[in-house]
Design a protein around this nucleic acid. Structure first.
Lengths: 156, 156
DNA sequence: GTTCCTGCAAATGCTTTGCAGGCAG
DNA sequence: CTGCCTGCAAAGCATTTGCAGGAAC
């Protein structure tokens, strides 16, 4: 499921291309494909997941290129690393400040764009504050349903 | 710096020992030492950092034991894996609801016990809300110093 | 044509696992 | 004593890096 329209993806890709030009970076099909995959998903894929998606269009792409492209995108501030629980780093092309709704049963993460209006100081315990993200823990609709079924049937 | 008193650490270790007994787990000096190190720190050490600390008292301890002990502590719900930023998983023996100050350069995580007083609805996008944690991103004092040094010397 | 980027493969770093001996109970 | 736990070493993954050829400009 796309969380932004194809037109918006195209616009963002155009901005990426402009950013590359202005930085003297080359615009390669692999770079565009990696960014498009990241833009088209709101489920915070791992590098490997992006790789599998890109491979559908460019079967000879290498995982190393995906990692290198993501690093470039991070430096251009077009992609952010998402703090996460698990073994792999996850990435997010949604650059606007937003928050995460995490299911404590199945681990699914959903974006929340609500503004909590937190007033953070510029400095906190000596840290130079850059931004924040609220992680809300809860049970997703699917898991709630599973729970109620389970209690009805006395299973597990 | 200790964020809880020695008495509190002792109490928590006693609870851990009781939990081990009730589960049929053996109480070994290594296990106690790993838990004590985790209790005594609020900076969410990596397994390696715990290992280095434990090694001061038990020079022959192995990193594998530290990993296995942390896994045991997680299963006993005495230690939590925290959302991480860098390359290693970080652990936390503070089980109460609290927030995190994360360095985007080196991944260090500091506890913030400040109450942000967010009023979350009971339901959000169909999720049954249970709690939240604020992740504040920034640059820690050590990394700020490194950054200013680098710009002074025009390196990289 | 020049330089940067890519694919491949090897290296690195973090974490897990198999095994034989040792210690807690 | 018995069997779980430990230390060691090797294996298993995720990610990074070196290098030679190829593509972008």
């Amino acid at each position: 499921m796309l969380y932004i329209s194809l037109t918006m993806i195209k616009d963002k890709v155009d901005l990426f291309i402009k950013a590359c030009r202005s930085m003297g970076l080359r615009i390669t099909p692999q770079r565009v494909a990696v960014y498009e995959v990241l833009l088209s998903r709101d489920d915070h894929p791992t590098a490997e997941e992006v790789y599998n998606e890109v491979k559908k269009r460019y079967p000879f792409v290498s995982l190393a290129t995906v990692y290198r492209t993501i690093e470039t995108l991070e430096q251009l501030n077009l992609v952010k690393r998402v703090a996460y629980w698990g073994n792999s780093v996850r990435y997010d092309a949604n650059i606007q400040e937003h928050h995460h709704l995490i299911c404590t049963k199945c681990g699914t993460i959903k974006d929340v764009s609500f503004d909590f209006g937190l007033n953070l100081p510029e400095k906190l315990y000596g840290y130079k504050v850059e931004g924040y993200s609220v992680h809300i823990y809860g049970v997703c609709p699917a898991c709630q349903q599973k729970e109620s079924l389970r209690s009805t049937h006395q299973k597990n």
